[in-house]
Nucleic acid binder design. Structure first.
Length: 289
DNA sequence: AACCAGGGAAGAT
DNA sequence: ATCTTCCATGGT
């Protein structure tokens, strides 16, 4: 068992992040004790890591602990990247003070981008969640993981690309996937196993190159690429204009009768570049619960 | 019952 | 290039 502490440079609302993480039934969170258990895939091994809030929004301190004693540095580095503790959210807050979203950022301070735990898992989840209402979306992804993935210490690991590539479409249809969705999930996994798609390599490329590569794959459109860039890679400047949640939030924020058009959204959101992701997160947050 | 859901492919202009 | 229509289900 090891335990390490870390201080973030600016404000950081970890309790909000926990609330978001707790929306996913596959992720074990505890709001009262303020921790989340993060499943970590290693080279040929797995670890479950507990990340716990020890401070508050103004003075964020975190503890990271695990009883997996090998590759401790790799694990800690991975956790730091997921939660992006080194990004100074005071700078983001400062930036939005000169925009029309200043009030919103004042109300919801220190909203971080918490990345999905794994590049491949994230892509599968985004494909599965396309167009579905949140409740059914989580039902589907939970069934998918609990049927084909693996559990360890109460935490669920997504199935590997190899495992998913070996499935028949009917296995997913039985879980109430549509035929299309079953094809998207399995075929994309097969591309990865065959070496035709390398997510690690993609993660080092600029957004437009990722869009060019991922967008060619059947079942992956602009919304899915944008969400993957935002949540898997944690990129700062994504604004999913096609997203219903974003549209609803802007409708409310701009006091419109109808949802604003994709084009209007894209144009206006340019004022929030290069930190559009934070605008998106904060807008989502403004219409939650 | 009708319409929507944190879309995308395929077909039609 | 841009616009419809269809895909499949569960939720409200």
């Amino acid at each position: 068992m090891w335990k390490e502490y870390y201080h973030a440079p600016g404000m950081y609302d970890f309790d909000y992040s926990l609330r978001r993480l707790s929306m996913d039934p596959l992720i074990r969170t505890n709001m009262k004790e303020r921790y989340v258990d993060v499943p970590v895939r290693l080279e040929n091994d797995r670890a479950v890591v507990r990340v716990k809030a020890e401070g508050d929004i103004e003075k964020p301190v975190f503890s990271v602990m695990s009883d997996h004693n090998e590759e401790q540095d790799v694990i800690f580095e991975h956790i730091r990247n997921i939660f992006q503790w080194d990004k100074d959210l005071n700078d983001i807050h400062q930036f939005f003070q000169q925009t029309e979203l200043s009030m919103l950022f004042h109300q919801y301070q220190g909203t971080p981008i918490v990345r999905d735990f794994n590049l491949y898992d994230s892509l599968m989840k985004v494909i599965i969640h396309q167009q579905l209402n949140m409740k059914f979306a989580y039902t589907l992804s939970t069934r998918f993981v609990q049927t084909f993935g693996e559990e360890e210490d109460g935490s669920w690991f997504y199935p590997t690309p190899e495992k998913v590539a070996s499935l028949e479409y009917d296995y997913l249809r039985n879980l109430q996937f549509s035929q299309r969705k079953a094809e998207y999930v399995i075929d994309t996994s097969r591309l990865i196993v065959d070496g035709e798609l390398d997510l690690q390599k993609l993660s080092k490329l600029p957004n437009d190159e990722v869009l060019k590569t991922l967008g060619k794959i059947r079942g992956i459109g602009p919304w899915t690429v944008q969400n993957w860039l935002l949540f898997a890679l944690g990129r700062d400047d994504l604004f999913p204009a096609a997203d219903i949640g974003i549209q609803n939030a802007l409708k409310k924020w701009w006091q419109l009768d109808e949802k604003p058009s994709k084009k209007d959204i894209e144009k206006k959101s340019m004022e929030w570049s290069p930190f559009r992701s934070y605008a998106a997160l904060t807008l989502w947050r403004s219409i939650e619960g």
